[in-house]
Amino acid sequence: MQGELGHEGVLVNLYYSFFRPIIKYRRAAIGFVILSGFVLMATVGPEVVPLNLKTDFSQRYKPPSFQHPLGTDYGGRDIFQQIVHGSRDVLTIAALAAMYAITIAVTIGILSGLLGGIVDAILTGLTDIFLTIPSFPVMMAIAAVFEVRDPFSFAAILAIWMWAGLARSIRAEVLSLKQKEFIEAARILGLGTSHIVFREILPNIMPYIVINFITMIRSAITASVGIMFLGIVPFKITHWGVMLYMAMFQYGAVYVPEGIYYALAPLFCIVLLEYGAISLAHGLDEIFNPRLKTYE
């Protein structure tokens, strides 16, 4: 019957399964609104806000005004424009990294849990190693050596160091699902592995994956902006991490009172964006895994 649903049906379904719980849980709602705002900024923003990177030193470090809502930078360029245009790269890199990492994690977690034996032993060992190695320094080193400049390879470098934790929990989840009857039944019925993976296991761990997607976006933002903040990947000048690098280490914006807007604007956006992601992830967690609260 599900396949028969028209457009309305899908919308109604989406409403009941996604929007209604989000409205009900304040935390998720806050996160959702914040993230939606940034997604809007990243998608529509650059189309409607022009970007003028011509330097005009007479306009250096102007405070916010009608003309420059967030003031201007060292070169007299509008900060708001940079923030809007930078948001696209920040979010693209983070979303790509999260997607890659989820793919790796799901593959390794399911393979490891489902196949067991020597494959499991090797993959578990590998996961442990990846969990032990501190991700940020490795990401830095690899990004530096390969002199990455495009979002795709940068996201890949991040993803390689982000999947391990999720893979481990997916493996555990698969192991416990394996004990459940419906998987047993599918086995006995001789339904193939692909059926078991795509019809039984994936739908069961989907909520988990969605939540992790959001938390990973958040970690990817921290990592990517952090690396750029250190000036290791000289990306576009509008990228928030590069803006911070400039403010901190190049233009000396942190030393002069007028430079405050240039330093604070990207900082504020990053904190707000991460706060949104964390809230949405926590909220979704509350929705999908309601704690059994017997009292209070």
């Binding site: 933002i221 952090g226 942190v254 900082l267 990053i270 991460e274 706060y275």
Partner: peptide, 14 residues
Amino acid sequence: SFTDATPDFVTAML
């Protein structure tokens, strides 16, 4: 939850 949303570089820079 506020400090969770502020990465190291934000705190250090501020």
